[in-house]
Design a protein around this nucleic acid. Structure first.
Length: 476
RNA sequence: CGGGGUGUAGCGCAGUUGGUAGCGCGCUUGGUUCGGGACCAAGAGGUCGUGGGUUCAAAUCCCGUCACUCCGACCA
């Protein structure tokens, strides 16, 4: 049976990946387009994934010492001009409120594209002493960036995210926090999203507007393109000076704090889709799947089938599994296709023959393998299997990714590597010209630096001595 | 922001040289089915994206505009 037969309404994943993506997000009812250009509605099935992400991540933040807070959506325009690089980076994409209450406003208000400026302003009021430090806060909110081209989850005018903002007494401590949160993200993406990510420092060109250093987490999509899935920034004293975040230190000296910020967004849902998905549609990691096990009664008109299915459902729910029975009056084949498209990790088929044998048929969405399991064992077998799927999905994604990482020692090799849908590792002298040259010839950008692997002798682009090892890739 | 494509029923589409709108799926009702997208019967559903223009007459031709989408440039 060809994969095409299953979900004919989805574009070919190998042929037209972007169309496949659009088809999948719309047809699985994760999202729909909003009435305003570039906006998206996150529908219940998509929002449930976000809620699962939030729940897991939020616990990790709290474990890392962070508290949640909420800062206002509207930010006085003047705040942005206080940090030169920051305003330059964000000004082009800020949406501004100029009228309210039927009158023109004295000062235009920006709809936050990110909150360093308001939060910095508030922190300057709250921090006086070294005893007030560190300050570690996170907020879950929406932000708005007026993008030219948009795509659901990957880039929309408005999106949901979390942004952490911290202040520390020393440079070392702030840098430590930056790396700590990078690792919190990494663990979360590995363990919960089953996403292998490459972490490292960004080049000057690619770093956050206003940061001293930006560290990114890059995931490889099925088409070999990179998706920046999270960032952690060391901001040094750039923002503390701009927003006057000062404290009296132990030595009675008045000092500026050192700040960090870190964020991830609903874009991660895009990463899940494009990393794990296949021709049949979504393949969701069990930990974030809104429904982990779908139970499909076969020959449901026959007595006792639905009852048994419901019985299994409640056993599974008691065992902590997000299980659901599809009792709709449709053919089993239709339901199989639908739930496969929606990426439910496990399917249970139960019909009269199974009930007779006290068993069910199980199918894994990730491998499409079927097996029969005794009904008595389900309460333990299903949670264990979900766990296995979670781990196998990460492994499978790692294998796919590692097969598509190549080394290059010339611009030509970088181009060939990127054209072959690979991540390309190469030596780099550190100059902007070489970075731009890669962009021009290969449409690829420096994703992250990986100097810890050993820096090659020469820059693959200009041949001068290399200072860094860089991963080049085309990116979303 | 440049280049291409598409807007006709909830979805996918057809609609010829301009002549007053159709198909498939879905939906509603009833019945038969049910182990990989079932079938029969009877129904409901559209000011053809939008604003102008040409014409006796526009889904169809012309101009504008908006949205979506694909390919680039800019960005999470």
């Amino acid at each position: 049976m060809s994969e095409k037969q299953f979900v004919t309404q989805i574009a070919d994943i190998n042929d037209n990946f972007t169309q496949w993506y659009t088809d999948v997000v719309l047809k699985t009812e994760l999202v729909d387009y909003g009435p305003v250009k570039g906006t998206m509605v996150i529908r219940p099935y998509g929002y449930a994934i976000w809620e699962n992400i939030q729940k897991d991540m939020d616990a990790r933040f709290k474990e890392a010492g962070s508290q949640n807070a909420y800062f206002p959506l509207l930010i006085p325009m003047s705040f942005f001009t206080k940090e030169a690089e920051h305003v330059e980076g964000f000004a082009p994409e800020v949406a501004v409120v100029t009228h309210a209450g039927g009158e023109k406003l004295e000062e235009p208000l920006a709809i936050r594209p990110t909150s360093e400026t308001v939060i910095g302003t508030m922190y300057s009021k709250w921090i006086q002493s070294y005893r007030d430090l560190p300050v570690i806060m996170n907020q879950w909110c929406n932000v708005m960036r007026w993008e030219k081209t948009t795509r659901p989850f990957l880039r929309t005018s408005e999106f949901l995210w979390q942004e952490g903002h911290t202040v520390h007494a020393s440079e070392d401590e702030a840098m430590e926090e930056t790396i700590k949160m990078l690792n919190v993200y990494k663990d979360f993406m590995n363990e919960t999203l089953a996403l292998p990510v490459l972490c490292g420092r960004k080049t000057e060109k690619e770093k956050f507007a206003g940061a001293v250093a930006t560290f990114g987490l890059e995931a490889m999509m099925r088409d070999g393109k990179s998706l920046q899935s999270g960032t952690s920034h060391y901001l040094g004293q750039n923002f503390s000076k701009a927003f006057d975040i000062k404290f009296l230190d132990k030595d009675s000296q008045l000092k500026h704090g050192y700040t960090t910020s870190w964020g991830t967004s609903t874009r991660m849902i895009g990463a899940i889709i494009m990393t794990h998905g296949d021709q049949r549609g979504l393949v969701l990691p069990p930990r974030v799947a809104p429904i982990q096990t779908i139970i499909i009664p076969i020959a449901a008109h026959k007595g006792g089938v639905i009852e048994k299915a419901k019985e299994i459902e409640s056993v599974l729910i008691k065992a902590g599994v997000r299980a659901q029975t599809d009792v709709r009056d449709m053919s089993p084949g239709w339901k199989f296709n639908e739930w496969e498209m929606k990426g439910v990790p496990l399917r249970i088929e139960i019909g009269p023959r199974d009930i007779e044998n006290n068993q069910v048929v199980l199918m894994r969405r990730d491998t499409l393998e079927k097996q029969t399991v005794s009904i008595d064992e389900l309460a333990t077998a299903i949670p264990a299997l979900l766990d296995t799927i979670q781990k196998d999905m990460l492994k499978a994604a790692e294998v796919r990714r590692d097969a598509k990482i190549v080394e290059a020692s010339s611009l030509d090799e970088i181009l060939k590597g990127v054209e072959g849908q690979n991540f390309v590792k190469a030596g780099w002298c550190g100059c902007r010209e070489c970075e731009d040259k890669v962009k021009e010839t290969a449409s690829a950008t420096a994703r992250v630096m990986c100097d810890e692997e050993g820096v090659p002798e020469v820059c693959a682009i200009c041949g001068k001595p290399a200072k860094h090892k860089v991963i080049f890739a085309r990116a979303y």
